[in-house]
């Protein structure tokens, strides 16, 4: 009996790991579709951006840093006139609040795990938490 319990616990654990990698992979795949459609025209296929115009999404403090900040950027756009890794960029990023919570979670998960980046996934509930204050007003 004990053995069966242990085995099933082990099995459940194993399934959970598979499910998680699957979700990351699935989220990345969905995220790439959003990226190619919405972000690529400015940040480019390689995430390298355009010198002095659109910033790179490669190893920047934004991309790898606080997830709330980049969720906020996708929801509200960015027009900050502040340097990103010491460089100024002469362009405005529009709000992409028309994307669903799922799409934003996916695209940011994709960005944080592409172009040489490695960082944990962005979840739907994290996006909801940043978006909700907008809905209240």
């Amino acid at each position: 009996m004990k053995r069966i319990v242990l085995m099933s616990i082990g099995f459940i654990f194993f399934m959970a790991v598979i499910a998680q990698t699957n979700t990351l992979k699935e989220s990345m795949n969905r995220g790439k579709k959003v990226y190619d459609k919405v972000c690529l025209s400015c940040h480019m296929a390689d995430g390298g951006g355009v010198p002095k115009m659109n910033p790179p999404l490669i190893q920047t403090s934004y991309v790898l840093g606080d997830k709330k900040k980049i969720i906020y950027i996708v929801l509200h756009g960015m027009n900050d006139r502040i340097p990103i890794e010491d460089e100024y960029f002469s362009n405005n990023m529009a709000s992409h609040a028309d994307l669903t919570d799922q799409q934003i979670a996916d695209v940011l998960t994709y960005v944080r795990n592409s172009f040489g980046n490695k960082a944990d996934a962005v979840s739907i509930s994290e996006v909801k938490a940043v978006r909700n204050p907008i809905k209240k007003k």
């Binding site: 756009g77 027009n79 405005n92 990023m93 529009a94 709000s95 028309d98």
Partner: peptide
């Protein structure tokens, strides 16, 4: 009204 925003 909102630069580069679809639908604006």
């Amino acid at each position: 009204v909102q630069d580069r925003q679809k639908g604006s």
